[in-house]
């Protein structure tokens, strides 16, 4: 779908840290170009001035954690031609989906002085669990270049180049030496979605998996390798229960190693 007139963009926030929305503001040099081509109609983080829907593109950040959110996302879907979920929260439930493994009431009673004021759902769920999502951009936070790529692609009616292959390919393309092979550092790169341009390994750190599972993610084989590198089950659970804890491959792998 190529949009001829200046398209209307809305940016929505659910349970999240705002980091993904900030990626749009962080575009700095490109931001004027964005504003020039797109009518930023609803973006509370940037402006109180809002334009009513319907919208051509809605960027949705955050996961659904309350009944109010669950109803609100339905309205957003109805007023959006294209709905793009951005970030780990919107695409997989985010770090707050760690509650999904426990009873959320236990947390509430520990964290809040007056738990009676807290009205929340048992589970944190991605946008796609509630409405049809046209495109998901993974990452915690998303990469601003990838966000611009997605916006450009939808503006001009082409497929975004956001390949779902491993982080390893990004390491190899930039010439970074494998930290797991050369230094024995556990790294989630082989099971993680590309997009960050392999930042952590380029600083001699293992990948944390903050872009979530790649296509056909073989977490079982990688876990066996982690075990051989001396990692215990508790830490294997921790490495998979992070930004994308409830994504299918990471959740399943963490459950294999979870003995609690």
């Amino acid at each position: 779908m190529a949009i001829k007139r200046k398209p209307k963009l809305a940016v929505w926030k659910f349970a999240s840290c705002d980091g993904c929305q900030l990626s749009l503001l962080d575009c700095e040099d490109e931001l004027l170009g964005v504003a020039d081509r797109i009518n930023i109609a609803y973006f509370l983080e940037a402006s109180r001035d809002t334009v009513k829907g319907p919208y051509d593109i809605s960027l949705v950040e955050g996961s659904i954690t309350t009944q109010h959110d669950a109803e609100h996302i339905q309205k957003i879907r109805k007023s959006s031609k294209l709905l793009v979920a951005i970030g780990a929260c919107a695409t997989a439930g985010g770090i707050q989906a760690l509650r999904n493994f426990k009873d959320v009431k236990d947390f509430i009673s520990v964290v809040y002085a007056s738990p009676k004021y807290i009205d929340t759902l048992d589970k944190s769920t991605p946008i796609s669990s509630h409405v049809h999502v046209d495109f998901e951009l993974q990452g915690c936070p998303i990469n601003k270049r990838q966000l611009l790529e997605v916006l450009s692609a939808f503006l001009h009616g082409r497929k975004p180049n956001t390949p779902p292959h491993s982080v390893c390919i990004e390491c190899k393309r930039r010439g970074t030496v494998c930290v797991m092979v050369a230094q024995g550092i556990p790294c989630l790169g082989p099971v993680t979605h590309a997009g960050c341009n392999a930042i952590c390994p380029s600083y001699c750190r293992g990948c944390y998996g903050c872009y979530g599972p790649k296509e056909t993610s073989n977490t079982g084989s990688l876990s066996s390798r982690f075990t051989r590198l001396g990692m215990n089950d508790e830490n294997i659970v921790r490495s998979f229960r992070n930004f994308y804890a409830t994504s299918e491959p990471f959740r399943k792998e963490s459950e294999v190693h979870n003995h609690l």
Partner: peptide
């Protein structure tokens, strides 16, 4: 069962 389809082999 062991292959990660990570593509390291082809890249190197």
């Amino acid at each position: 069962k062991r292959c990660l389809t990570c593509a390291n082999c082809t890249m190197v």
